[in-house]
Simulated assay, not measured.
Amino acid sequence: MKPAIKRVWVLGAGQLGAMLKHAAQPLGVDLRPVDIELDAILALEDDDVITAEREQWPSTVATDQLAAHANFVNQDVFSLVADRVTQKQLLDRLKLATAPWALVEEQHTAASLHEQYGDRVLLKQRTGGFDGRGQHWLVAQQGSAIPQGWHDKVIAEQAIAFDEEVSIVGVRNRAGDCHYYPLGLNRHQDGILTVTLAPLERLTNLQSSAETMLGKVMDELNYVGVMAMELFRLGERLLINELAPRVHNSGHWTQSGASISQFEYHVRATADLPLVPALIKHNSVMINLIGIDYNLAWLALPGAEVFWYGKEVRPVRKVGHINFSMADKTQLIHSLRQLQATLTDWYQPALDWAIDELES
């Protein structure tokens, strides 16, 4: 029987929208990313489905039309999660561990925040801000102050002396069925995700806790699709850093390392296609390409799968990523060493870290 073609519109036409479209085509789903700046009326049908690749967007003819559609999946979730105040309130209400925090109000000073949260306090803008942007550290010994105009626009978080950063990506359909990928181990540099490793045997004891935490959030929100949760590991405890109600950078390794990628999972869930557990293939490493030009030498690396986004190259901008997924860990490490020779000095600590982890 020929499957009925389902049409899914994606609010946003960046690299995530492009990868969703690529994942949808083999499934027989007509997926259409929409530029958030588009001022044009779209030919929407009543049974079309709307999703998004981002938490926020401007008001245009196209975005307003998509946002008003009755089948806009997770319509109320985006604004809730995009604001760090309401996101933190959600986690507190669910009794899920997160860093102690407060909305920075007019009466707050750096001194009062240090008194409550310690010598190091991180200020984060309520909305926007990613890859380390929109943040400011208050350090008592440096006499730093709350930047002018930041009151009521940022939250303050207690600094967390975490052991490492991990993330979990899961999917939920309308029936409430959930599936999860193994925890990924993340390395950030200058606040930007640089490398993700998955799966790691030493993290399996934390898998159940992470799944329970993410599942609790998705069930509470009646969420449909892929959601990511960034976490701090403190010994055997997990502390939630942030949520992302969409496919996520730390899940890109699944394009090579799993039988169903996070992008395919999101398409399946939003288009009401069957969900089954993804089979994990091999040891996987994802390396973000940040602010560097395309290098044909990457295509000559054994096992390298290059994803280039076709964006203008600018400093600290993510312009692509490279996945490796190999059963032979020795070959994987060898390929990573070859990759190091093609990248700038900025990448060397992150690649050394990944190799050390794989060799341990």
Rank of each mutant, 00 (worst) to 15 (best):
A4P: 11
R7L: 01
V10H: 02
L16H: 01
G28S: 09
L44N: 04
D46K: 13
D48A: 01
V49Y: 03
R54A: 11
S59G: 09
D64W: 07
A67K: 12
A67T: 11
V73G: 02
V73D: 06
Q75P: 03
Q75W: 11
V77G: 03
L80C: 12
Q89P: 00
D92V: 07
L94G: 01
T98C: 15
W101C: 00
T109A: 10
A111W: 04
S112F: 09
L113P: 00
Q116Y: 06
Y117K: 08
Q125R: 13
G132H: 04
P147C: 10
A156V: 02
Q158F: 12
I160D: 10
E164K: 15
S167M: 04
I168L: 11
A175S: 14
D177T: 15
P182D: 04
Q189R: 12
L197P: 00
E211Y: 08
M213G: 07
V217S: 07
N222W: 07
V224Y: 04
V226C: 05
M227N: 11
M229F: 06
E230T: 06
L231Y: 07
E236F: 08
E236V: 14
E242C: 11
V247W: 02
N249C: 03
Q255A: 12
I260M: 09
E264A: 10
D272G: 09
L273Y: 03
P274V: 08
S284I: 05
V285A: 05
I287W: 03
I290Q: 00
L299Q: 13
V306W: 08
V306T: 12
V306K: 07
F307Q: 15
W308N: 10
G310I: 01
R317C: 04
G320Q: 03
I322C: 04
N323Q: 06
L332K: 01
L332R: 01
Q340I: 08
A341N: 13
T342W: 09
T342S: 15
A350S: 12
D352H: 15
L358R: 01
